[in-house]
Structures are given as structure tokens and as C-alpha cells.
């Protein structure tokens, strides 16, 4: 949506769109116009930020990290010890910030990430959070009834698996390192990354099974 955005803020927008503008369109536009006229906001920066989060930053970054951890035990250990440092050394095109923490799923522990107080989420690795992550039901229920929340995602865990919920109440940001699916021995990192879903890195889903990815 940013590519055809008109920088001529405050002029002729009604005519451009040819339809009645919503209250929020009008209010955002008014504030944006004022902040731009005062020189605080550079429209080019605004477009660049929108474009970055719409097209460049997303779960594919986290998937690369998970695939590397599955393929390289040395990297896995470094990731679990200090995720920001380990990921910085991968030299990914999109940089990641500090205070990232990777938590590992095992046959006995399943991790889930939530932010009960707002919407803290590992943007640098997963992009902007999905609407459900920011919603009242997810924020309210995950700390109290995580298995029932998982059921809303169609996920059922073995009874013996313990669920661990991480509430992101400070500036640490969490990503789940899911378990590597069976029958993927010898797969390339690129192919392993195809198994990694966004939800599997939040803990509300599991990675795809080997037979869900084209050989």
C-alpha cells in the first residue's frame, strides 16, 4: 500500500479516493499532516518503515534461524546461550536487536510466548504480531489455560508434556525453538526452513511434518 501512496498530504484526498473517509483515516491524516508540516516527520521515512515491515521483516527470518539451529548443534547452543549474539553472527540482511532469548521445546517441555500487558513480540525475527497475539483472549487466557488456548489453534500435546508460558513483561523478547520434525535427516537448511511456521516459533503451533513439504 505504500508504493502508490501520495505524499501530497492534506490536499485532495477526498477526490483521490472518491469515497467517504473514515474517522480514523481523517484523524491519522490530520496528525500526519501537522507533524510533516512542522518538519518532524519525513514522508520518505514513513514509507520506508511501512515497506520494511510489510515486505522485508517477517517469519522467514526466524525460520532461517531455527533451521540453522536444527542443522548445526554449535549454533543451537550459541542461540540458546545468547540469541541476539548468535543471530548477529549469522550476518542476516535484516539485523536483530538485543535481549533476544530463544527457548527450546523438548519432548517434556512445550514453550509458549505471550505478552499479557501489551503486545511485546520478537519483531526483528517474526515481523509484526498477528492480530490474535495482540487480542484480549490470547493475552488473558494463555497464562491461565495454555492447553485450552492451544486447542483453539488445533494443537493437542501429549499429556506428559509440560507447558511453560513466557510472559514478555520487560524488554527481553522470546522465540521458541521448536523440535525438529522426524524424517528430515540430511535436509538442507533451506528445506528445513520450509518446515518452520510462524506459530511454531510463538508456541501456538508445531512445525510442519516432513511429508507436508515438497521433496
Amino acid at each position: 500500500m505504500s508504493s502508490n501512496h501520495d505524499h501530497d498530504h492534506g490536499h485532495n484526498h477526498d477526490h483521490e479516493h472518491g469515497s467517504e473517509l473514515s474517522e480514523m483515516q481523517l484523524r491519522v491524516r490530520a496528525l500526519e499532516t501537522i507533524l510533516t508540516e512542522k518538519g518532524y516527520v519525513d514522508p520518505a521515512a514513513l514509507d520506508s518503515i511501512i515497506e520494511t515491515y510489510e515486505t522485508k521483516v517477517g517469519p522467514h527470518i526466524g525460520a532461517q534461524v531455527v533451521a540453522r539451529a536444527w542443522a548445526d548443534s554449535g549454533f543451537r547452543e550459541a542461540l540458546l546461550a545468547d540469541a541476539s549474539k548468535a543471530i548477529a553472527q549469522l550476518g542476516l540482511q535484516q539485523k536483530v536487536g538485543d535481549h533476544l532469548v530463544a527457548v527450546e521445546n523438548t519432548p517434556t517441555t512445550h514453550n509458549m510466548i505471550v505478552c499479557t500487558l501489551c503486545s511485546c513480540y520478537p519483531w526483528d525475527l517474526l515481523g509484526l504480531p498477528p492480530a490474535w497475539y495482540k487480542s484480549a483472549p490470547y493475552r488473558a487466557r494463555t497464562v491461565k489455560e495454555p492447553r485450552k488456548v492451544l486447542a483453539d489453534f488445533g494443537v493437542t500435546l501429549p499429556d506428559e508434556t509440560k507447558v511453560r508460558v513466557w510472559d514478555s513483561t520487560a524488554e527481553t523478547r522470546f522465540i521458541v525453538l521448536p523440535m525438529r520434525p522426524a524424517a528430515t535427516e540430511g535436509w538442507s537448511e533451506e528445506k528445513l526452513a520450509e518446515l518452520v511456521t510462524r506459530d511454531s516459533m510463538i508456541g501456538t503451533g508445531l512445525p510442519k511434518a516432513a511429508n507436508e513439504v515438497q521433496a
Binding site: 500500500m1 473514515s22 483515516q25 487480542s135 501456538t204
Partner: peptide
């Protein structure tokens, strides 16, 4: 608050003003 409702067709911003609110 009811069930969690995942949306398989999730988009970052549903309307232009949301994207602008974010970037501002």
C-alpha cells in the same frame, strides 16, 4: 473474552491509516 481466533489470511495492516499510525 472468548476464543482465540487465528486468521489464516492475516495481513500486517488492514487499512492504510493503520500502517501510517504504526510508522508515525
Amino acid at each position: 473474552f472468548g476464543k482465540v481466533a487465528p486468521d489464516p489470511h492475516e495481513v500486517s495492516f488492514h487499512d492504510e491509516w493503520q500502517a501510517h499510525s504504526f510508522a508515525l
